[in-house]
């Protein structure tokens, strides 16, 4: 793990950062079930446990106003981390402090200062009009009347919520719902907001509006944002720092600029080849391109840096030795970068 923020250490020790995570670990015990009746009877007396480490000794610290992308494959431990930061889960070991509070010990106090959007799960009240939901949230978070009114007016304008306010949540489309969700998460002016896949399944126009809103809130209130997403564009447009985790461990923690410098020239070409036997990398590409095996027979992807080679050379090198049925050149994807980091290290 590389820490591009040596100054963080000072913050950490002074206790000035917004989120501090040290040696954070979460283990789940899973009961193994033997099949059949005999297994069930046996299960009453003897139980086999396996321990799964969803989050494994994670360290990072985030300052106020940072916009951090928290990235990893499904099951990498992102949600588990966020649940520990928001006080839903108790860590198995390690320290976590948010705003100087240990979330799982003072869950309610912590809840007052955070906002969250958890993917498809709604924060709003399902059966009632959006406006009523905001009214209830005002009372739940004890927001002063004046502040509530001003904030809401601003959100209505920025997120264009006006036409939605009278509609019950269950009748909203996905994009409409997400706009309303975001407003709900920011309504009490939290100092930290956790956004878990806020743009999943949305069309481009809504995504753009949502990203603009998040940036705007950060600028206005210096809100700290921790964002998980699979969408590279989200990261590019919102974040100034990313943390990549895999199998519960931090692989990379640093600025977006530097990871782009290292991996931004990364290109991937997907080939569909008529293969007879194994695919071997053509000699011209040795040491310059990386093979990512595909899921189906004959599908092969090559990643390489556009600094070292251009796409045309790669294609001609492959076509020199294989017959291709199809090929596509892909944009650099965050998954590819993660894969790359996972394969070769930073």
């Amino acid at each position: 793990m590389v820490n591009y923020y040596p100054e963080n250490r000072e913050y950490f020790e002074m206790g000035c950062s917004m989120i501090e995570v040290r040696g954070l670990t979460k283990e789940y015990t899973i009961v193994k079930k033997s099949p059949g009746l005999r297994g069930a009877v046996k299960g009453l007396f003897v139980r086999d446990y396996t321990v799964k480490r969803a989050v494994d000794n994670i360290n990072f610290s985030i300052n106020q106003g940072e916009l951090v992308g928290y990235i990893g494959a499904n099951g990498a431990g992102k949600s588990t981390t966020i649940k520990m930061l928001s006080g839903i889960l108790t860590p198995s070991s390690g320290e976590v402090k948010v705003n100087g509070i240990i979330p799982y010990q003072e869950r309610k106090k912590n809840a007052q200062t955070i906002g969250a959007v958890f993917g498809q799960r709604t924060q709003l009240f399902w059966d009632i009009a959006v406006r009523e939901s905001y009214h209830l949230l005002k009372h739940i978070y004890q927001i002063p009347d004046k502040q509530h009114k001003e904030t809401l007016e601003m959100f209505i304008e920025v997120l264009n919520l006006g036409p939605l306010l009278a509609t019950p949540v269950r009748q909203l489309s996905l994009g409409q719902k997400m706009r309303c969700e975001l407003a709900a998460a920011f309504l009490h002016n939290p100092s930290i907001v956790y956004l878990d896949e806020p743009t999943i399944g949305l069309d481009v126009a809504v995504k753009t509006r949502i990203r603009a809103f998040i940036r705007e809130m950060n600028k206005l209130h210096n809100t700290t944002v921790l964002l998980t997403t699979h969408d590279m564009q989200d990261i590019e447009e919102i974040c100034n720092r990313i943390i990549i985790i895999d199998e519960g461990k931090v692989l990379y923690d640093g600025s977006l600029a530097s990871i782009k410098e290292r991996f931004g020239q990364k290109r991937v070409i997907h080939f569909e080849l008529d293969l007879e036997g194994e695919f071997t990398l053509p000699a011209a590409l040795e040491g310059k391109a990386n093979v990512i095996p595909g899921e189906e027979e004959g599908k092969i992807s090559l990643s390489f840096s556009s600094k070292e080679m251009n796409a045309a050379d790669v294609i001609s090198a492959v076509l020199g030795e294989y017959r291709a049925r199809d090929l596509t050149i892909a944009d650099p994807k965050i998954e590819t970068i993660v894969h790359e980091i996972y394969e070769r290290g930073v």
Binding site: K83, S86, G87, I88, R107, K108, K109, A111, Q112, I114, A116, F118, R121, T122, Q123, F125, I140, Y141, Q142
Partner: peptide
């Protein structure tokens, strides 16, 4: 089951109260 209890837990109120008031 649907994970909605998480929503209750990130609110600054007693979770039992919230479930009942719902």
């Amino acid at each position: 089951r649907p994970g909605q209890f998480d929503r209750i837990l990130i609110r600054p109120v007693n979770p039992l109260f919230h479930v009942l008031a719902d």
